[in-house]
């Protein structure tokens, strides 16, 4: 095994720690809001019972159990950060994820936006069973798979636009209509201003579609990573401002996977990780 391959394996382990740590922080910051949503869902009118793989129905739970599952989810993530029974902690985190998040799936920043969490945790679990790197197509399989999981979100969204809307989806009318609908709900003047300009809406439609169907290119050509990731971030920040759709809240830590191949970035992170561990050992 050469140094580059070794470094890839180290980078994945570093990704696991960064991802779980940041995810735990995001979860803690939003836990109060999520609890309020859980409580506000009077008579569970807007909670759809989620079925895992369209098979396993997740039962509705009480407030106390909801809080317990949330707390246990964070503890499991922290255990993974400290390499403490990673396999079991990962499996427990997946279980707690489904029990907790399925109760608040209808919350705007949860719906579909946290779907990658159990997949990432499952990759961590399978990876932790072996303590040595395995390579597929010259890459550590975990990093390659997670990049594919990430890219599938956009590729599938792009394909769906043509499947459901047809090529006419690109003429700008759909983008215009969605923006107008959001203006009618939220009253953001900029949303209306953009929606009034059909040429600009058509331009946005092409831009979004091309970006979605070509995002996967960064798996093969990592030199385009910065371009696509910056575009992706600005796209999500814009939709958050214009349409109140916050995609980044739980997805943001997943972006680490695209920078983890960068050697300078890894060394900087390793330095911080060492300091972090030292702080707790003191």
């Amino acid at each position: 095994m050469n140094i580059t391959e070794n470094l890839q394996y180290i980078s994945f382990n570093l990704f696991v720690k960064c991802y779980c740590f940041v995810l735990a922080i995001i979860f803690l910051v939003n836990s109060h809001n999520q609890l309020l949503y859980f409580k506000s869902n009077v008579k569970r009118k807007y909670i759809n019972s989620q079925k895992i793989f369209n098979l396993i129905t997740i039962p509705l739970i009480t407030k106390k159990v909801f809080v317990f599952y949330g707390f246990s989810f964070v503890i499991s993530l922290i255990f993974i950060v400290f390499d403490f029974f990673t396999t079991i902690s990962g499996l427990l985190a997946i279980f707690f994820y489904f029990m907790y998040f399925s109760q608040i799936q209808s919350l705007s920043y949860i719906q579909r936006k946290t779907n990658t969490i159990p997949i990432i945790l499952l990759v961590i679990v399978v990876s932790s069973i072996y303590n040595f790197p395995t390579y597929i197509f010259g890459h550590v399989w975990e990093i390659l798979l997670l990049k594919i999981v990430f890219s599938q979100m956009y590729l599938s969204a792009g394909i769906n636009k043509i499947r459901l809307g047809g090529l006419r989806w690109l003429n700008g009318h759909s983008t215009q209509a969605y923006l107008l609908e959001n203006y009618l709900w939220n009253g953001n003047k900029l949303t209306l201003l953009i929606s009034n300009n059909i040429v600009f809406c058509a331009f946005l439609s092409y831009l979004i579609f091309l970006y979605e169907v070509s995002f996967w290119i960064i798996i093969i050509y990592p030199q385009f990573t910065l371009f696509f990731v910056l575009f992706s971030l600005s796209f999500h920040l814009s939709t958050n401002y214009l349409m109140k759709i916050n995609y980044l809240k739980y997805l943001a830590p997943f972006y680490f996977i695209f920078f983890i191949d960068n050697k300078t970035f890894i060394f900087e992170l390793l330095k911080y990780y060492d300091q972090f561990i030292l702080f707790f050992k003191r």
Binding site: Q50, K51, I52, F53, N54, R112, N115, T116, I117, P118, I119, M153, Y154, S156, A157, I159, N160, K161, R163, L164, G165, G166, R168, W169, H173, S174, Q176, A177, Y178, L180, E181, L184, W185, S195
Partner: peptide
Amino acid sequence: GIEFYPFSSFPMFSNYLEKEQIKI
């Protein structure tokens, strides 16, 4: 293009709409 939670085909904003259809 199906939903298989936690896997999803992410069909958001994919339907063809025109502004005349929008009424809330």
